[in-house]
Amino acid sequence: MNLPTFISAIIEQQPYPLLFATISGSHLYGFPSPDSDYDLRGVHILPMKEVVGLDTGAETIEISKVSDSLEIDLVTHDIKKFFLLLLKKNGYVLEQLYSPLILKTTPEHEELKVISQDCITRHHSHHYFGFAATQWKLFEKEQPHRVKPLLYIYRVFLTGIYLMQTGVVEANLIKLNEVFNLPYIPDLIAQKLADAEKSTLSNVDVAFHHREYERLRDRLQEAYEASTLPEAPTTAQAALHDLLLRLRIKS
């Protein structure tokens, strides 16, 4: 990716050391419009004195700014909060952790990715069921219909199905469709890549997409039922605890 230079500056200006920082959102999913926001996500490490003292540091830092007509949205969580989210059925944090669009990394980031393989469970499917349902309601409600929520629906379902089948976190719709071969995906992506972030669809067949929504929802349910992924994390909590202590002491 050719990234605007100010993104690196924003990462370097953060008040606490970063375990990692990656890009999420449309850029990760493979369909950014020319005016798409940059969704930056990461994990920061609060120093010991701001964890055990009376004046504690921020568990979550959120920064939004506009530079060169592009909006930057940065969210980072402290290591403890992020590790606790990993132990829940939270697909967002997995996608942030395994994003290949890396802005900042450390040896411990690589270690965390190995540990977090054991955090992936069958019940992460519930995250994708819920996300798809929310996006379908948004797509159905808006008039005229926008391409972005529709692409999010397909991205979410395919990510969830693929995760249940393989245990691998893949958030890029272009790569996912190399596996699932949905014939309408390339045209939808092409429109999103060429038009503005809030571009709308003309002559959209809502009934067809609703049938596809229901079909893929059923496929995700079948993938969940057939998945060999564990019911809950097993050794991950102890390994995360050990990594948390080492990072906190190091800070």
Rank of each mutant, 00 (worst) to 15 (best):
Leu86Glu: 02
Val43Glu: 04
Val93Ala: 02
His44Pro: 00
Lys88His: 08
Asp73Val: 10
Leu70Thr: 13
Ile72Met: 13
Ile72Pro: 03
Ile79Ser: 07
Ile63Asp: 07
Leu94Cys: 10
Val51His: 06
Glu50Leu: 12
Leu97Glu: 01
Val66His: 07
Ser69Val: 08
Leu85Val: 11
Glu95Gln: 03
Gly57His: 10
Thr60Gly: 05
Glu95Ile: 02
Met48Asn: 12
Asp68Val: 09
Ile72Ala: 12
Val75Met: 10
Glu50Ser: 12
Asp68Ser: 14
Gly91Lys: 01
Lys80Ser: 11
Leu46Trp: 05
Gly91Val: 08
Lys88Pro: 00
Ser64Val: 13
His77Glu: 08
Lys81His: 12
Ser67Cys: 10
Val52Glu: 11
Asp73Pro: 00
Ala58Trp: 01
Asp73Ala: 14
Leu97Ser: 04
Val75Cys: 08
Lys65Asp: 09
Gly42Lys: 07
Arg41His: 06
Ile79Asn: 03
Tyr92Ser: 13
Asn90Lys: 13
Leu97Met: 00
Val66Trp: 08
Lys88Ser: 10
Val43Gln: 02
Thr76Lys: 06
Lys49His: 15
Leu86Gln: 08
Ile61Cys: 08
Leu70Lys: 12
Leu87His: 05
Leu87Val: 11
Val66Ile: 13
Ala58Thr: 07
Leu97Asn: 01
Ala58Ile: 02
Leu84Asn: 15
Lys89His: 13
Val51Tyr: 08
Leu84Tyr: 15
Leu74Val: 10
Leu54Phe: 13
Leu84Val: 15
Thr60Trp: 00
Leu85Phe: 14
Ile79Gly: 02
Ser67Pro: 00
Ile45Asn: 00
His44Trp: 04
Arg41Ala: 07
Gly91Gln: 01
Val75Thr: 15
Ala58Gly: 02
Gly53Thr: 14
Leu40Lys: 00
Asp68Ile: 09
Gly91Leu: 03
Gln96Val: 15
Pro47Glu: 09
Ile72Arg: 04
Asp68Asn: 14
Lys81Cys: 06
Gly57Val: 11
Val66Glu: 10
Pro47Tyr: 09
Gly42Glu: 04
Asp55Glu: 11
Glu59Asn: 13
Lys88Leu: 06
Asn90Ser: 05
Asp55Cys: 06
Leu74Ser: 03
Leu87Met: 14
Lys65His: 09
Lys89Tyr: 10
His44Gln: 06
Leu84Asp: 14
Thr76Trp: 04
Leu86Phe: 06
Thr60Ser: 14
Met48Ser: 15
Leu54Arg: 11
Val93His: 02
Glu71Phe: 05
Ser67Ile: 14
Thr76His: 02
Asp37Cys: 03
Ile61Glu: 06
Gly53Met: 10
Glu62Val: 10
Lys65Arg: 14
Val52Gln: 08
Gly42His: 05
Gly57Ser: 12
Leu84Trp: 15
Gly42Arg: 03
Leu70Val: 12
Asp68Thr: 12
Gly42Pro: 01
Ser69Phe: 07
Val93Trp: 01
Arg41Thr: 09
Asp55His: 08
Val66Asp: 10
Leu87Lys: 06
His77Asp: 12
Gly42Asp: 04
Asn90Val: 12
Phe82Ser: 02
Lys89Phe: 12
Val66Pro: 02
Ile63His: 11
Ile63Cys: 09
Gly91Glu: 05
Lys81Thr: 15
Lys65Leu: 15
His44Phe: 07
Ile79Gln: 05
His44Cys: 03
Lys81Tyr: 06
Glu71Gln: 14
Gly57Pro: 14
Leu86Asn: 05
Val43Tyr: 01
Gly42Thr: 07
